[in-house]
């Protein structure tokens, strides 16, 4: 067992060393990518509807389509590289991909390791419920039943702000919480814009959003110092937001328009 661990540790160290030997964190320019003719874009494949694998096992989803749009815009071939949540930043900074379109939420900690573009997607968590119900803030939750997925962001957020006499009903996942709302067992639920879009497609006009709990912008990421590339991507995002093409992709995959805070870039 001990030897096994040593071997693993050595392999890990070697992998790290190779990563660094392959080159220091190198800035990237659009010219380099265009002269090479291929862009390597990292994306998640386990985060529906943003990153998934299609029937043939190829990356697909909103992120994949945004990556295709970007590669077309640059006039280069696209090489999609599946990455995972924990290894996506290491893949970028070790030069294995040029760009991440990997549902990477903008946080101050991550901004120290990578450079973020303007947001291209976003998740917003809302309190959502019966259209007839007048709830505009946390105090409106008083005496109400609210369905949430156990220990989700919305559970944490609602537990923090809800008055003591609000009854937070915790289900095992979003699907069951949605079921509680649809069957009329709870008049309210906490959920993301992705889930809410799905509900509105199933039951139009029965529900509306009451108030926002949290919002998280996701951005395209490049290696630090790649200012020209970042300018190119930001210009690209401004153009595809203006001509509606990125919104069409969002409608197709997420089932609703791009959230307002993503479009305005706040």
């Amino acid at each position: 067992m001990k030897t096994c661990k040593t071997v693993l540790a050595l392999a890990g160290a070697a992998a790290l060393a190779v990563g660094f030997v392959a080159g220091p964190v190198a800035a990237q320019t659009p010219d380099e990518i265009q002269s090479r003719g291929t862009v390597n874009i990292g994306l998640l494949v386990d985060f529906p509807p943003f990153g998934i694998l299609d029937e043939a096992g190829n990356p697909d989803g909103y992120d994949a389509d945004v990556a295709r749009l970007l590669a077309d815009d640059m006039g280069v071939e696209l090489n999609l590289v599946p990455v995972t949540g924990p290894n996506r930043i290491p893949y970028l900074v070790s030069n294995q991909v040029d760009i991440l379109v990997a549902s990477l939420g903008i946080t101050p900690e991550r901004a120290e390791q990578v450079d973020f573009s303007e947001p291209y997607a976003g998740i917003e968590i809302f309190v959502f419920g019966d259209a007839g119900l007048d709830v505009s803030g946390p105090e409106g939750l008083s005496g109400q039943n609210i369905a949430v997925a156990r220990a989700s962001t919305q559970d944490t957020a609602i537990t923090e702000i809800a008055p003591a006499d609000a009854n937070i009903q915790r289900f095992d996942d979003d699907a069951t919480a949605v079921q509680a709302l649809l069957s009329g067992q709870t008049p309210l639920m906490g959920g993301s814009n992705v889930v809410i879009s799905q509900i509105e497609a199933m039951a139009p006009d029965r529900f509306d959003t009451k108030f926002s709990l949290r919002q998280q912008s996701q951005a395209i990421a490049v290696r630090p110092g790649s200012d020209e590339l970042l300018d190119y991507i930001n210009d690209f995002l401004t153009r595809v937001k203006a001509d509606g093409s990125i919104n069409a992709l969002h409608e197709e995959w997420v089932g609703g328009p791009l959230p307002e805070f993503v479009v305005s870039g706040d």
Partner: peptide
């Protein structure tokens, strides 16, 4: 029964575990 958000012993355990 915690599957329908009843507040029994298993639900209490699930809540503590997931937090």
């Amino acid at each position: 029964v915690s599957a329908i958000s009843a507040t029994d012993l298993a639900a209490a355990g699930n809540n503590i575990q997931s937090a």
